[in-house]
Amino acid sequence: MKKLIYTFLILSSATLFAQKKLAVAGDIIGTTELFDSEKKAMHLSKTYTSAANLPVNLQKFSTAFPQGITEYKFKNGGLGRDKLTFQQINRQYNIPENNTVFLDGHEFTDAKTQIFAEIVGKIEVKDYNGNKTLYISTSN
């Protein structure tokens, strides 16, 4: 029994660490890995440890990130990378544009939320409350 539990714990932790940590720059979701690779363009970063501590501009993320999030600010307006909204991705998969989307287990009900395109690793369509729903993972 102990071996079974240890095996489960090891596999669970491997899965958890395979996911990249999500972060925000402006109103766009990326990963800390993506933002850290752009250190020259970065102005500053700040980590908020709970949804209650989020500043007004990040309050819309409070339900998706109840344990807080890291915010990055960039010089000269930010990164020149491709961005997508959840509406656009839903449309590509023939799902109603305003459906909920899950990104690394975080639920987003605002389909206008933007993400950097390159953080998308894997997309699956699953049933959630009787609706087709996208589950996006930042790892393959």
Score class of each variant (00 low, 15 high):
G130M: 03
N94F: 05
L84Y: 11
R81D: 13
F86S: 13
D36E: 15
N98L: 09
I136F: 07
I95D: 07
E71Q: 13
I29P: 08
R81M: 14
D127N: 09
K40L: 15
S37M: 04
K20A: 06
E118W: 00
L134T: 02
D82W: 00
N98Y: 10
G77R: 01
P55K: 13
T113L: 08
T15S: 15
H106G: 00
V120W: 01
N53D: 15
T49S: 15
T100F: 00
Q92H: 09
N129S: 14
T49A: 09
Q88N: 10
T31A: 01
N131F: 03
L11M: 04
T49W: 11
T7N: 12
Q88V: 12
Y72M: 07
D127S: 14
N76I: 00
K2Y: 08
V56D: 06
I123C: 13
A23K: 01
T47V: 14
S62G: 05
Q59Y: 07
Y135N: 14
V125H: 10
T47D: 14
G78M: 02
K126P: 14
T100S: 08
N57K: 14
L54I: 06
Q87F: 10
I29V: 08
G121T: 03
F116C: 12
T109F: 02
D82H: 00
Q19H: 06
A41L: 11
I89L: 15
K60Y: 11
G130T: 07
T113I: 09
N99W: 05
E118P: 13
F108P: 02
E97D: 14
N90E: 12
A51C: 05
L84T: 01
A25H: 05
I29N: 03
Q87S: 15
I95C: 10
T85W: 09
S50N: 10
Q59R: 13
S139R: 01
I115W: 03
G130V: 00
F108S: 05
A51R: 07
A23M: 04
N131G: 03
N129P: 00
K126T: 07
F86T: 12
I89N: 08
A18L: 10
L22M: 01
Q87H: 11
K20R: 02
Y128H: 07
A117I: 00
Y93I: 00
L79E: 04
T32Y: 01
V24C: 04
G77E: 07
N98D: 15
T85P: 13
K40G: 11
E33N: 04
T15E: 09
Y72L: 06
D82F: 09
G30K: 01
A117V: 00
T133F: 06
N53T: 15
S62T: 12
H43T: 07
T7Y: 13
G78W: 03
S50R: 03
G26S: 01
Y48D: 06
S137T: 04
Y6D: 07
S62M: 02
K122M: 09
R91H: 08
K75R: 04
A23S: 13
R91F: 11
